[in-house]
């Protein structure tokens, strides 16, 4: 066989393999959207779920998902940022930091149901936080931290060391160099990383079943007292998210239109995650462009 022919075959095989991936994704998306989008209606987005009757909506679950996402990002971004700055700038190359990196990698490969059960024992039972948004956000933090730390660290180390040297040579301290030169330059990568992790958090169910709980108490969107159980701001109330709702309908749903609600909710979930991804790419590119003026 001539090298040219071998090359041609290799390219075609690679095309085929990538094609399979695209095909799987496309058929999955099409199925979910074709099945789900017809369920969309004003009621679907504005009514609470119904347990036994037809016509329940997802407003509370949808709200819970966003609220939980916001809290999780608020908790995990600063922690991940700190760890990433330490690892990329300050940490010496020794067996301890290698150990920390390995630990992060192991943590990121933990099945989310294990994280969920750990969160249940730790936050729900031990810390007596109960099934609550707070327990859920803490479990999701554990779930989210490794990957987020990794992406932020990667964006920080991607900044050429000439920038770091330039700052230091200008009489900036190490901390000033990090906060005033490296962080701004790494911002596009960091924002992209945060938004991508938002997609993962938004779609997560297993880690939440035993932490944020499987019930969605009625919310009164005019009640802004964070201590009240019906207030959307309360972080101590149980909060079923969209992803958990889908799981629950399919495992023990009693409403007659369960499959329809589930299909509609899945479509909403997919569209949300998809738009997070598109937003991440868009923002990343835009900031990159602004920074490099390329």
């Amino acid at each position: 066989m001539t090298p040219k022919k071998a090359d041609k075959i290799a390219v075609n095989v690679l095309y085929g393999l990538s094609g399979i991936i695209v095909l799987i994704l496309a058929s999955l998306l099409t199925y979910i959207l074709v099945r789900g989008v017809p369920q969309f209606s004003i009621e679907f987005f504005t009514q609470p779920a119904k347990t036994f009757e037809v016509g329940g909506g997802i407003i509370i679950q949808l709200y819970n998902s966003f609220y939980l996402l916001l809290l999780t990002l608020l908790i995990s971004t600063p922690v991940a940022m700190g760890a990433a700055i330490y690892l990329s700038v300050y940490a010496p190359q020794n067996s301890f930091t290698t150990f920390v990196r390995t630990a992060i990698e192991v943590l990121s490969s933990l099945p989310s149901i294990v994280v969920g059960l750990f969160g249940f024992l730790m936050f729900v039972v031990q810390f007596k936080l109960g099934f609550s948004i707070l327990s859920g956000a803490l479990a999701l933090m554990i779930f989210n931290l490794p990957l987020l730390t990794r992406t932020i660290e990667d964006s920080l180390t991607a900044i050429p060391s000439s920038q770091r040297e330039g700052g230091l040579a200008l009489g900036l301290s190490k901390w000033e160099t990090v906060t005033r030169i490296i962080l701004p330059a790494a911002m596009p990568g960091i924002i992209t990383g945060v938004i991508l992790s938002a997609g993962r958090i938004f779609g997560e169910a297993a880690a939440l079943i035993y932490t944020a709980g499987q019930s969605a108490p009625a919310l009164d969107f005019t009640n802004w007292n964070p201590m009240s159980i019906t207030s959307p701001l309360n972080i101590m109330r149980p909060a079923e998210t969209l992803a958990v709702h889908i799981w629950k309908i399919n495992s023990e749903g009693l409403m007659p239109d369960g499959p329809d609600v589930s299909a509609g909710a899945s479509a909403v979930l997919i569209l949300a995650v998809l738009s997070f991804n598109l937003l991440a790419r868009y923002l990343g590119k835009k900031i990159q462009k602004k920074i490099t003026s390329a």
């Binding site: 050429p160 000439s162 920038q163 330039g166 700052g167 040579a169 200008l170 009489g171 330059a185």
Partner: peptide, 20 residues
């Protein structure tokens, strides 16, 4: 060293302006 480097400035082989 921060004060020292203010008095003894340095220019590198690769131009390294900050992205501002």
């Amino acid at each position: 060293t921060v004060e020292l480097r203010k008095k003894i400035g340095m220019v590198f082989q690769q131009p390294n302006p900050f992205p501002f």
